[in-house]
Design a protein around this nucleic acid. Structure first.
Length: 507
DNA sequence: TCAAATT
């Protein structure tokens, strides 16, 4: 077993030595010391060094503050010329701090007319590794409150609550500690915990989010995501263009290789996303078909028909249900059937398109087989074709293949809320439904001014609920009537008015 | 199961 000598003290099996602060700073085996540095060691930038001083000359100067892990004089990449500065890392974080306070701007090296610079290198990340993002704060918690919450974990260098233009808190903050370890400690004990138990109204359900703040890279990526999302929702093509556009933009801006690679992956991923389009589309198609059948039966949108009532399925489609779906369905995008449907029941095409009720199902009980893996021969795809036939307007006359991608031009709306009574909360959405699909699904009931599926920011996965806003309450009611209880796969949609946000903040 | 959020 190796016996090593550390600071004159014999240790058994010592694979590491410790400095005065009790930290590991070197691996000593026999005569050889393999330098090791603290995990939180600081790389220092040394400026204002005379150009005639090399590493060996500088070493003694800095060694008095501790063991040096690495010292590199910066040289011009091409000419090899001494740049008058260096990077210095001590094994111990402590040494760096000592050197900084003893030397920074404290003395001027011979031949220099400005004092020496000793400070953490830019590469030390502007403190990003010790800066925390704090979410789920109470809107009324001030910087002071936040500071109090975090100060037990270390030295706080900075504490800012994010605020909107009106000065109202956005419910989150940045807290910068003087070290990574302190920040980590704060995360460990505060993340997921309660701020101040019961101190504020929503306290019961809100648990604090404490995490390291995004790095530049992450921020860039997120921005890209947002942009691509905006561009790509309604036209798969733009997804591709958008992504690659952003990618080349980034390249031209001179991103790091690593960053570029990430962007490349993003772009590829977004392009690939197109392929998943059929799934939700097929689901929608079938959904709309079912809607139409339902409409057909009653003739009117708001007619007393309640798919919401458990497993009820309206009477089968038959030719007595003629009162065309044209009029009521004609709202928004699903214009009337072309008049030349030869007087036949308007739902006839469903049958002629080969979509028959499944054994044991009522005519319109075509369930959305959760759209998980529809194959080309899947009934859903046929349903989809059937819908084409229905989706009158130009599409009714156009080749099917063209009809779908050219759904009515939907201009992406900003997420906005309609007046009271116009906003719906929809739960039990299929996982693969996105904003566009949600919008599609509710278009037949009126002017959809906004359709938003709630997405988990971390995973980018739908949380299976969303919001749809109409510009008038009766559209909203019609949508509830028709869509609440609507079966998709194993689940039934829950469609109800969104809870109005209460203006009265209990305190 | 009811829209937050990265200066």
């Amino acid at each position: 077993m190796a016996t090593v000598t550390v600071n004159g003290v014999q240790q058994e099996n010592g694979f590491s030595t410790t400095n005065s602060a009790g930290r590991m700073n070197g691996l000593v085996i026999g005569q050889n010391t393999i330098p090791m540095k603290d995990h939180d060691a600081i790389k220092l930038f040394i400026g204002q060094i005379p150009r005639n001083l090399e590493e060996k000359d500088l070493k003694p100067l800095f060694e008095e503050f501790g063991k040096i892990y690495e010292l590199t004089v910066l040289k011009d990449r091409f000419t090899g010329m001494h740049k008058g500065c260096a990077f210095l890392t001590y094994c111990a974080r402590e040494s760096a701090l000592k050197a900084q306070s003893a030397l920074h701007e404290q003395k001027t090296l011979p031949g220099m007319n400005r004092p020496i610079q000793v400070k953490p290198a830019d590469s030390e990340g502007r403190g990003e590794d010790r800066k925390l993002f704090v979410g789920m704060l109470g809107k009324q918690q001030s910087e002071e409150d936040v500071r109090r919450l975090f100060e037990t974990f270390g030295q706080i260098e900075e504490c800012t609550v994010l605020r909107g233009p009106d000065g109202a808190s956005k419910g989150c903050a940045f807290v910068k500690f003087s070290s990574h370890a302190e920040a980590q400690a704060a995360i460990n004990s505060l993340h997921g915990g309660q701020t101040m138990p019961c101190a504020y109204p929503q306290g019961a359900s809100s648990s604090l989010v404490v995490k390291f703040a995004d790095t530049d890279k992450e921020r860039t990526l997120r921005r890209m995501h947002q942009m691509a999302g905006q561009l790509g929702i309604f036209s798969p093509m733009t997804i591709q263009f958008g992504a690659y556009g952003a990618y080349s933009h980034a390249v031209s801006l001179g991103s790091t290789g690593e960053e570029t690679q990430m962007m490349q992956q993003q772009a590829a991923l977004m392009a690939a996303t197109q392929n998943s389009y059929l799934n939700p589309m097929a689901a929608i198609a079938a959904a709309q078909m079912q809607q139409m059948a339902a409409f057909n039966v009653n003739g009117l949108v708001a007619a007393p028909m309640t798919p919401s009532s458990g497993t009820s399925t309206p009477p089968g489609i038959n030719s007595t249900a003629v009162p065309s779906l044209a009029a009521p369905m004609g709202v928004n995008g699903f214009a009337s059937l072309p008049p030349q449907t030869n007087g036949q029941p308007t739902n006839e095409p469903i049958y002629t398109n080969g979509i028959h009720p499944y054994p044991g199902e009522t005519a319109n009980g075509i369930h959305l087989y959760s759209a998980q893996s529809p194959t080309v021969s899947d009934p859903l795809q046929q349903a989809y074709a059937g819908v084409q036939h229905y989706a009158a307007y130009p599409a009714a006359y156009a080749p099917i293949s063209q009809a779908f991608p050219q759904q009515p031009a939907i201009i992406p709306q900003q997420q906005r809320e309609g007046p009271e009574g116009c906003n719906l909360f929809i739960y039990h959405l299929p996982q693969e439904f996105g904003d566009a699909e949600l919008m599609q699904m509710f278009l037949p009931f009126g002017n959809v001014i906004s359709a938003k599926v709630f997405v988990d920011r971390a995973t980018n996965q739908s949380k299976c609920f969303g919001f749809v806003s109409f510009d008038n309450p009766s559209s909203a009611q019609a949508a509830i009537q028709a869509m609440n209880g609507f079966q998709i796969g194993m689940k039934r949609l829950k469609v109800q008015l969104k809870r109005p946000k209460d203006a009265n903040r209990p305190y």
